[in-house]
Design a binder for these strands. Structure first.
Lengths: 329, 329
DNA sequence: TCAAAAGTGTTATCCTTACACCCATGT
DNA sequence: ACATGGGTGTAAGGATAACACTTTTGA
């Protein structure tokens, strides 16, 4: 309980750097599909306590130095000290703790610099295809996810009926069904359930091949290095939640935008459709934006009025966000 | 962006271990008032990646070993890598990153064991007297907090009027007034504001004595070692928020309790009064508890019916908590 | 003149808030 | 009998969810 000698460990800062382009949320990955054969991962950098006073400053430091991106909003997500999760059981290398971060940015002009560094932006729904409900319930759920999950729940019942019930309840809470609605914020819970059920490649890699090999299931979504997909799941969940009570969307928008563009961006992140009128009322009654007076030549149809974010709201109201209510629309 | 050598750092796990006794939230502190002359701090232990697979397991490990407490709920709060915050500028010791945790427990029987270890439970409002609104607005706000804070906001206006406006807005958002209500969840924001204004001892210690010495202000609340009070503020804020959408209160209750006891506990944590009928309806419509059939000989007055937590809710509904609405009652 | 997207007005419903009153026990 | 805390029914107000329709441009 008092001071004692602490074990030396290395600390890495892992970032989910998010932007939105063409109504698609994208994240910066290294070693992705475009750049080579290696499995994609999130960018990360070491934390050097001598050069940087705080973890946040350290993160901004290496991101700026290595990617030439200007990240605005930065938020710490979670700290993982997992051995036996992203490390192999026989791994005897130096121990590492990684601090996960969410960072928001605008889509950059000079993608060339990133490509040179072996990095690029990828749509995040490649890694989580079941999270995009904008065109209705994704087919992958009924085709490839729920059947093996239900089998996984049943499988526990052979020895222990109560455990099967617990698994079924967990399944229902995470993936909806049986009265429970789909909750777009439970991204991490769903990923962890798939991990536990051995349906994502990472579970295999971490030594759970038993479950995976036994069922010969197709692996769901594009896997990532270490536990980076878990960090990305945390980032998506946090961003989806934060949208509702902090005006963070605007970090992802151009300085001027139409209300439909704003709605499309919110929909892209939260992965579901929103009711147009209600969305507009929320934005309006929240006094989150102000008209610039300009209009834009639309992609077709009537030109849209342009708006900009009212920075003042942050000093006016306690929780200025888009309190998107319950279900779909 | 790729792998590179990481700086070795030590990692400490710092825990805010919370219980509630006699309608008072208490936390475990080391070196507190009862035990000696040293300044109180939160208990902490090293993280040993060899002995423990994850950070959470590591925390449970040393808490169990050193305090003989059974902590139920455990939640990671935040990771601080601050130099220049809890360390002195001239500090050249080994660098340390501390991971803050919130842990909930029942009040223990054998306090003797804790005392022997130089630890004990203290009411958390000693460290944050302005956070307890159960007997109405605390006098300390008007007496000792708001006047110097307003002066601090005005002081910035001499060179830079806009900055004074920003400070005033921040003050209003954190401490209410001018239409903004008091938000009991902004515990951390308030502490950080007081820190920035030089009104807590920790700011002095960290090298901000200028502001403090200039105004010769009385120091607010009992200070703590390092940045432990900041971690405690984070813990209180998180717990107050979590109450509303997760049934965490029950970790702090005896297995059987009356509804008034439950309400008193929630009030103790959130630091404000609740409307009796509304509270009961919330508990009832939430189906969070079930009657045991027993009653208890009350402290006076009619005997109260006893209830127990319905563990099943966690498998039934998505976010089972006490959705305590807006203002006071 | 027609397609395509922008933009608006209104109503039913639920949830939150607040009120005021009755009950059972110990002294 | 009365003080003390336990326990309940019900109405007003506001926020949310859902509805269908008009307007303005480019092809």
């Amino acid at each position: 309980m008092a001071d004692s000698a602490l074990t030396p460990i290395e600390i890495g800062l892992t970032a989910a750097i998010v932007a939105v382009e063409a109504d698609e949320p994208i994240i910066l990955v290294t070693g992705g599909s475009g750049t080579g054969a290696t499995i994609p991962g999130l960018p990360f950098g070491p934390f050097d306590p001598i050069a940087h006073r705080t973890l946040d400053i350290g993160l901004r430091g290496w991101v700026k130095a290595q990617t030439a991106l200007t990240v605005g909003y930065v938020e710490q997500l979670y700290t993982f000290g997992d051995r036996g999760r992203h490390a192999r059981p026989d791994d005897a290398g130096p121990h590492m703790v990684s601090v996960g971060y969410l960072a928001l940015t605008r889509v950059p002009k000079n993608v060339a610099a990133l490509r040179a560094a072996g990095a690029g932006f990828e749509p995040w729904y490649r890694f989580f295809p079941w999270e995009d409900w904008r065109d209705g319930r994704p087919a992958i759920l009924n085709d490839a996810i729920l059947p093996p999950l239900e089998q996984w729940a049943r499988a526990a019942g052979r020895d222990d009926p109560a455990r099967a019930g617990g698994r079924r309840a967990r399944l229902r809470l995470c993936f909806g069904g049986g009265g429970s609605p789909w909750d777009e914020e439970k991204v991490l819970d769903r990923y962890e359930l798939l991990y536990d059920a051995g349906l994502v490649e990472e579970a295999h890699r971490d030594g759970r091949e038993a479950a995976l090999a036994r069922s010969k299931m197709p692996v769901l979504g594009v896997p990532m290095r270490y536990d980076h997909r878990r960090i990305l799941a945390t980032a998506i969940a946090r961003l989806r939640a934060k949208l509702k009570y902090r005006p963070v969307v605007f970090e992802l928008m151009a300085p001027e935008f139409s209300l439909t563009e704003l709605q499309r961006t919110v929909e892209a992140i939260s992965g579901r459709h929103l009711h147009k009128q209600n969305f507009r009322r929320l934005v309006e009654t929240g006094a989150l934006v102000e008209p610039t007076g300009e209009t834009t030549a639309a992609t077709g149809g009537r030109p849209a009025a342009l708006f900009r974010f009212r920075h003042e709201v942050m000093q006016e109201r306690p929780a200025p966000g888009l309190r998107l209510g319950g279900r779909t629309s």
